[in-house]
Simulated assay, not measured.
Amino acid sequence: MAESIKTKLMKASEIPAFVDEIVKTGCDICAVGHDKYVVGDADLSPAHYKEVRRQLDRIEETYGDRDFLKLEIVAYLRSIGRYVDLGADGAE
């Protein structure tokens, strides 16, 4: 018999706290255009990445599934100036 897996769903009211926690890890989170966002970690050393990965996993567990809030997260990131707009050719 299949087991039911309960997944926590992030609330829209948790978006500011979620973004703040991501920023505190040292990762850059920003909207890309009007329908996507990314969490960047390219500037982290391998050792620092291991620590940050644990923090990001904890954040993921704390807030749960947020896929359905993608556009709301993007709108919030844009409202606080954390965004990159791309031109028609994909360049900034």
Rank of each mutant, 00 (worst) to 15 (best):
Y76M: 04
Q55M: 12
M10Q: 11
M1Q: 08
E72C: 04
E92Y: 05
I80W: 11
L86C: 08
S79Q: 12
F18A: 01
P16I: 03
Y76V: 09
A91T: 13
K24R: 15
V32L: 12
V52M: 07
Y83C: 13
I15W: 04
Y76F: 13
K50F: 10
I80M: 12
C27F: 08
K11F: 07
T7Q: 11
E3S: 03
R58V: 02
D20P: 00
G81Y: 10
V23H: 13
F68V: 10
E3Y: 03
G90Q: 05
K6T: 07
A91Y: 10
E3D: 05
G87C: 04
V19A: 00
G40S: 13
D20F: 02
D35W: 09
V32G: 05
V32D: 06
D20T: 04
I29H: 12
S13D: 14
S4V: 15
P46I: 09
C27N: 13
V52Q: 06
L56S: 01
G64W: 02
E72M: 06
F18C: 03
I5W: 06
G90E: 03
I73T: 12
M1S: 10
D41P: 00
D35L: 06
D43H: 11
K70D: 06
E61N: 14
I73F: 09
T62N: 01
I59L: 09
G64R: 01
Y63S: 07
S13L: 10
T62K: 11
A88D: 11
A12L: 08
R58A: 08
D67W: 02
P46G: 10
V38L: 01
Y63G: 08
G26E: 04
C30G: 01
A17F: 11
G33K: 07
L56A: 01
R54N: 02
D85T: 14
G26Y: 07
D43A: 04
S13A: 14
Y37C: 02
A75Q: 14
I22C: 04
D89E: 10
K36P: 02
K11H: 13
L69E: 08
I22V: 14
L69D: 09
G81W: 13
R54W: 00
C30D: 01
D85C: 11
R58Y: 01
I15Y: 06
E60T: 12
A17D: 15
E3W: 03
G33R: 09
V19N: 00
L69N: 07
D41A: 00
L77G: 07
T62Q: 04
E60A: 11
A42R: 08
H34N: 06
I5F: 09
E51L: 03
T62W: 00
V23A: 11
D85H: 14
K6H: 06
L44N: 00
G26C: 08
I80R: 12
G87K: 11
H48S: 04
F68T: 13
I29F: 12
A91W: 11
E3F: 03
R54D: 01
P16H: 02
I73D: 06
I80H: 11
E14D: 15
K11E: 14
Q55A: 10
A42F: 05
D28N: 13
A12E: 15
R66L: 00
L86P: 00
V23Q: 15
D20N: 09
K50A: 15
V39Q: 11
Y83G: 10
D20R: 10
D41T: 00
